[in-house]
Design a protein around this nucleic acid. Sequence first.
DNA 1: GCGACTTTGTGCGTTCGTTCACAATGGGGT
DNA 2: ACCCCATTGTGAACGAACGCACAAAGTCGC
Lengths: 233, 233
Amino acid sequence: MNPRQTNAKAFKDSSKGIPEATVARLPVYLRALQGLKERGVETVSSEELAAAAGVNSAKLRKDLSHLGSYGTRGVGYEVEYLVYQISRELGLTQDWVVAIIGVGNLGRALAGYGGFASRGFRVAGLLDADASIVGERIAGLTVEHTDKLETIIKDQGVSIAVIATPAAAAQPVCDRVVAAGVTSVLNFAPVVLSVPEGVDVRKVDLSIELQILAFHEQRKAGGPHEEYIEVHP
Amino acid sequence: MNPRQTNAKAFKDSSKGIPEATVARLPVYLRALQGLKERGVETVSSEELAAAAGVNSAKLRKDLSHLGSYGTRGVGYEVEYLVYQISRELGLTQDWVVAIIGVGNLGRALAGYGGFASRGFRVAGLLDADASIVGERIAGLTVEHTDKLETIIKDQGVSIAVIATPAAAAQPVCDRVVAAGVTSVLNFAPVVLSVPEGVDVRKVDLSIELQILAFHEQRKAGGPHEEYIEVHP
DNA sequence: GCGACTTTGTGCGTTCGTTCACAATGGGGT
DNA sequence: ACCCCATTGTGAACGAACGCACAAAGTCGC
């Protein structure tokens, strides 16, 4: 029932096999490599790159080995070539069209974020439900009303939607973008979105991060470890 | 060689034992519970709560079991009581003082974010290196110059620093806040921060999230799976 | 060419996390 | 007072991820 890859050596065996944990680290490696490239470095060892990326060198090598055998023993990895391979694996050699829905402070910050344009992501639309914002120009784009959401998604070929609306609007907006054909969503609203099978959602949540930090901070300070159990009344 | 907790039944066995993966989900449960509470729900089963939080119910039960035995068999969990217990475990029953360094678009968005004040986090300072921003009032606070960073951290008792500066400034700023005594950092700049042992850093990186989405999107579309290996020249 | 040296790629044991499946247990109805 | 039912809490099996340690494989100097 599982038509795994048949290990035909002439083809990359990456057909299915890159672990999620590895995928999450590839962008970090990529950024480190780009930094090295700008500084004119041509070759880097797993040890050096791992240090720059903040990971263990064995992990780095294993991660890279999932993409293929791109290193040279005794030497290391050729920076430029590795940048290309990781970019290709991540799909950054093609252009991704992004729409940002919700143009509050956060939406503006995202619209102006340099990391977009720089690496294969093109913001094709800024949308908001608030009529007093519609028409405003931000980062070279005119804010459109959310009425036009479906039109813009289809006309511009948007494949990634960034939801930066208030919590209450997020699920309805999500339903609409999904209905319009978007299959990848980046959600900044503090809600759990429910989506049909086949749609990817990633969530960025400031307040969750803070709470995790608070937990550890409390631990350092002595925390609630050794207290009597308070019996449920 | 493993001095595990000695299972003294009179004490909570959470002395050390909450898995990181569980900690990361507690805030999600907490938010779901608060939603239920507002809607007047008094009791909830693991099945319902798990659905609201978007996880498997067995996982939810195991997570909660790490905090103690707060459910009632045949009934479920008392919403209000569980809210309290999770809040306490996360350290939200005390106030955490936060400083935001870098008051660009992102810093402004963070300063105005409701999730702060609402749950035990108090923003005690907005700092920026740009003199033309210093003095501006945002969300009830006056922007201070980063010269005063150490003073503010110490006078206000800041324990969590949020770094929303450009990439180049992040590491120096981080070094300063750590030197001033901060042991928890939330980093929005696209760099890997290096910190001494004992300091926690969490990273929020928009462009990494987008790249992960792009990877999966590419996979859905047929991706680079079955291409010939291009031999390294 | 050859040998010493460096660094990759990976097999393996370990740890961490998830899921299943069910015994334990409290509540409520009769 | 007892039994039935719903739901928790958890043992155990499974799977994913990590990191060590080393053989394989290439480079560089001579």
